[in-house]
Nucleic acid binder design. Structure first.
Lengths: 339, 339
DNA sequence: ACAATGAATGTGCAAATGTTCATTCTAAGT
DNA sequence: ACTTAGAATGAACATTTGCACATTCATTGT
């Protein structure tokens, strides 16, 4: 961590350069240091996120679709980004920003958050702006995964978010998945882990991504915890996606094929008890996974883009038709999502 | 205002330059435009605040002093910045940031804000980050002043803030001060002005600076509405400062020498009726003005730095001693500030 | 005491950026 | 159709920035 005077100097220099638009030479002269030093301070300021660049994407939301999602899946809030540019490269970053703004608005001093892992979660956390008034502690919701991209791990995410929210990070010092149920139980009985899990359960807000068990992209396979084969088996047995490492079926029921028990982290029931669970996911490839996730009844606030939202609603309607529930008006509260 | 595709382009370019750290040449090549165009888009992106630089100052507050201020002046909240660097040049910017974060936290969708003019107000508004979830309309609390720095005028401040909060700005199309009471009444009876003033009175949140009637720096003299002489007279007659153009005495009573009636804007009584009035002021030169301001009972939330806070508390204690109120423990609610 | 290691600082140059001015395009008026 | 004001563009140049490398400074081990 950065100590007060260092941090203050970085802030000072960054402010002069980026806000007052002074040249590095001018700053150097005023502070009585060499220009190259100013250059290095600026570099450090960016690295340490003492200065943050926030892009204000033009956000257009889709209130009709948001209302539909809320009705069909009993959500408290849905945030649907209406995309414009054909270029989809920034879609996740923009949805992340949408989620981050929502988060910023609901957080209050002394709340506790819990986060899991993944790119969606990362994007939200990254888009949260520092300078929060007050302190929010952040607890890891699941164990750590040896990932290709270490910044996407739940531990680093917890750290980054805690730094932005002026609170402490609490780490779950365990792997996300272990080899046997016994090993998992053993770990869970450890004092440290018990304490952190208990804290996570009492969190005010949880932030989750939805994984879709795709052998090509799943963090499970990348981390070496599941082979492509095992994943395929799980999918055959009805698993469609996961949140916080907990796999569920397309009906939103926990997967019973014996994987979830080996995960060290919050269970779906734990999540359901958290007052505000916010989930982010985009991509039509994730349609089934998202459908299952929304039906678990875990999610209170869901954040996505228009294409995904439409695909999910479409898919939900089809399933409903297949179950021959008559006339499912989107204005009536149906019971699909409840568990 | 910026239309969607323009805004999107600016965001795109800004993201490539500041986040992905591409050179202007590379961006130009990828988008198929000239480098110079990219340069201009970047410039525009900064001007329009499509990209924003947020400095993460290590903010240290002074809770003891905050509590004292709250007690002595019956404030709902006091925000006191504990300064570190001997360099005071950034003090106002940082106090502004402190105020802005507080604002961001209390604002809710569909609220209405009202703002006056001045550098302090400007700093707060400038530090408010765009991307607010929802809409907040902003109403001018006082008429416009022909200022040296037009960006400090209430009309431009209202515009900037409204843009950031995704709402409409409502302008009070009148000068701040007119030559006679009759002229003022005439103006106030105009439909337009009546409407806007009524709206300002019903605002949920007001943002004010505290002026100290210093001939050298007062916006009144700069705007040509008061000569240095007149100002001196007002000070002799007991006026110590102003908020929203309304002058008050060190006891927090409205100044009765006949200036306030010529101002087109919210009166102190109007302000007192607004649920949340936030005021910002720093500088030991403003001690007396701030003391009077706090005693008007108008202010709910006060934002300043440590030196100023101490000076004001000191000054308040002296006045109390002079009035020989015994044993003014700071833990007891005294009655100084009430009007 | 003396080398050795590594962090902090400075130099010089190539690359990137900002600015000015002339030119081209656009569109509205006569 | 021609003119003209004003915006958008681009070329050329001055300034600023980033970086590789050299140097100094402090610290630790022998």
């Amino acid at each position: 961590m950065l100590d007060y005077t260092e941090h203050d100097l970085l802030a000072q220099v960054a402010s002069m350069y980026y806000l007052e638009e002074m040249t590095q030479d001018a700053i150097a002269a005023q502070l009585g240091v060499s220009r190259i030093k100013v250059y290095r301070l600026l570099k450090q300021a960016r690295e340490e996120q003492v200065i943050q660049f926030t892009i204000n994407w033009p956000v257009q939301r889709a209130p009709e679709v948001e209302a539909q999602l809320c009705n069909v899946f009993h959500l408290r809030e849905a945030l649907v980004l209406r995309p414009s540019s054909p270029d989809r490269s920034h879609a996740l970053a923009r949805v992340g920003q949408l989620g981050a703004r929502y988060l910023e608005q609901i957080l209050r001093n002394d709340m506790v958050m819990t986060v899991c892992l993944g790119r969606s979660t990362y994007e939200v956390i990254h888009a949260v702006r520092p300078g929060f008034q007050g302190h929010v502690d952040v607890v890891q919701a699941v164990g750590s995964l040896a990932l290709a991209a270490p910044e996407l791990d739940s531990a680093s995410l917890a750290r980054e978010l805690a730094a932005k929210l002026g609170g402490k990070a609490h780490y779950l010092t365990a792997p996300m998945v272990v080899d046997s149920v016994e090993a998992a139980e053993m770990l869970r009985s450890q004092r440290d882990i018990q304490r952190v899990l208990a804290m996570a359960r009492r969190a005010d807000v949880a932030l989750l991504g939805v994984g879709n068990l795709d052998p090509a992209t799943s963090e499970f396979t990348k981390g070496g915890y599941l082979s492509a084969n095992e994943l395929a088996q799980i999918r055959t047995a009805g698993g469609v996606g996961d949140m916080s490492g907990q796999i569920f079926t397309v009906d939103g029921l926990p997967y019973t094929g014996g994987f979830n028990e080996r995960v060290i982290g919050l269970r779906l029931d734990d999540l359901r008890a958290i007052p505000t669970v916010m989930a982010i996911a985009i991509g039509e490839a994730k349609t089934k996974a998202i459908l299952g996730a929304l039906r678990t009844g875990v999610i209170d606030v869901f954040c996505t883009d228009l294409d995904t939202a439409r695909a999910v609603l479409e898919s939900a309607a089809q399933t409903r038709d297949a179950l021959s529930i008559p006339n499912p008006s989107s204005n009536l509260r149906t019971n699909d999502g409840a568990v």
